[in-house]
């Protein structure tokens, strides 16, 4: 098991390097560079013109004349060794100051959605498979398709509109105004949980629908396997044997989907939080991209991706723990 974990961690390294590389390309993509934006900002703020020589000096200092790969190295080594993600010119602050709080909330929301997805999809999937072609199965299948077809930002919009019309309030944000800036306390936590469920459901809907179908299909496959018959011939009761054998085995592909669902949920969280105006990564990433505040945007993309990859690793380890065939081979 330890060897398996070590191997998976080793395999993760090239992926992480690739992610940082792609992110840096994204950072570099917009025409012009960080300095142009910075100079423009200086000009706008101070009204003073920055002369060419000064720009060249800055350019030299930031290494903007270096070849791509050296620039990349400077950027990534600063992040890894010093935790320095560069500066956001729009917020005029180090990126790392803006980053962590929002990333943290993003992952709390994503993980809550993940929990919601699995808790809902598992029983419904099992029910749909065992009661195949029953009324309940059809109803869940229908809602499953609908859940897959409604983009989550649309769902968020609809919920907002309904809430505004019926209750007269917009259910945006993750905190009530009085707690937004307050330090963490029990009351704030409760307030947070009260706000959490709407984004959780919105973000999780599509994944829930997909996972119900995965669980149903896998379990249907397993229900006809000979080992089920063996257990039946042993005299085990239907309820216990279905949970102990086919459901247990159908759980493996279900859990292995974790690695796919987490990126999807983080994606979903990004766009939903823009609509719901949550204090997570989504809105700030969007504004950063719109104003081409590329170090800020790039850092968000980088950290979201890295954490997702780590999440996938955790799900793989969980799967190996569940399935001896993976653990031993």
């Amino acid at each position: 098991m330890l060897r398996y974990i070590a191997r998976r961690i080793l395999l993760m390294i090239p992926t992480l390097i690739l992610i940082s590389f792609v992110t840096f390309i994204v950072v570099q993509l917009p025409p012009g560079d960080y300095l142009n934006a910075y100079v423009a900002q200086l000009t706008a703020e101070g009204g003073e013109t920055v002369d060419r020589q000064q720009i060249e000096m800055l350019r030299e200092r930031y290494g903007l004349n270096d070849p791509f790969i050296i620039q990349y190295w400077k950027w990534i080594s600063n992040i890894i060794f010093e935790g320095d993600f560069g500066r956001s010119f729009e917020w005029n602050a180090p990126v790392s100051d803006l980053l962590w709080g929002r990333i943290g909330l993003t992952f709390v929301v994503s993980l809550a959605s993940l929990l919601f997805v699995y808790c809902v999809a598992f029983p419904i999937g099992v029910y749909s498979a065992i009661r195949k072609y029953s009324l309940g199965d059809y109803v869940f299948t229908f809602f499953g398709f609908l859940g897959l077809a409604v983009p989550n930002f649309l769902l968020a919009l609809v919920l907002m509109v309904i809430s505004l019309q019926v209750f007269g309030v917009t259910p945006g944000g993750l905190f009530s105004p009085e707690y937004a800036g307050a330090p963490w306390s029990f009351a704030k936590l409760m307030d947070f949980l009260a706000h959490l469920w709407i984004p959780m459901i919105i973000i999780g809907t599509a994944s829930t629908a997909a996972l119900i179908r995965v669980m149903r299909a896998n379990l249907l496959d397993e229900l006809n396997k000979p080992y089920v018959e063996t257990a039946r011939a042993k005299g085990q009761s239907e309820a216990v044997l279905i949970m102990r054998y086919p459901v247990r085995i159908a759980l493996n592909p279900f859990v292995s989907r974790l690695g796919w669902e987490l990126p999807a949920l983080v994606s979903g969280a990004a766009i939903t939080s823009i609509v719901l105006n949550l204090p997570t990564a989504g809105p700030i990433l969007l504004t950063a991209l719109q104003s081409q505040d590329m170090f800020l945007a790039g850092s968000f993309i980088l950290i979201l991706s890295v954490l997702t990859v780590i999440g996938t690793l955790v799900s793989d380890i969980l799967l190996a723990w569940l399935d001896p065939r993976i653990r031993y081979s």
Binding site: P226, E229, A233, G235, Q236, N252, D323, P324, R325
Partner: peptide, 27 residues
């Protein structure tokens, strides 16, 4: 019924053709 389940595996036991797939792979 519990009655038939008490018979299965106790009074009448059964073995099957495929020894691989007739055993649960994860137990």
């Amino acid at each position: 019924s519990p009655e038939i389940r008490a018979i299965r595996g106790a009074d009448i036991a059964m073995i099957f053709q495929e020894p691989m797939s007739s055993l649960s792979p994860v137990h």
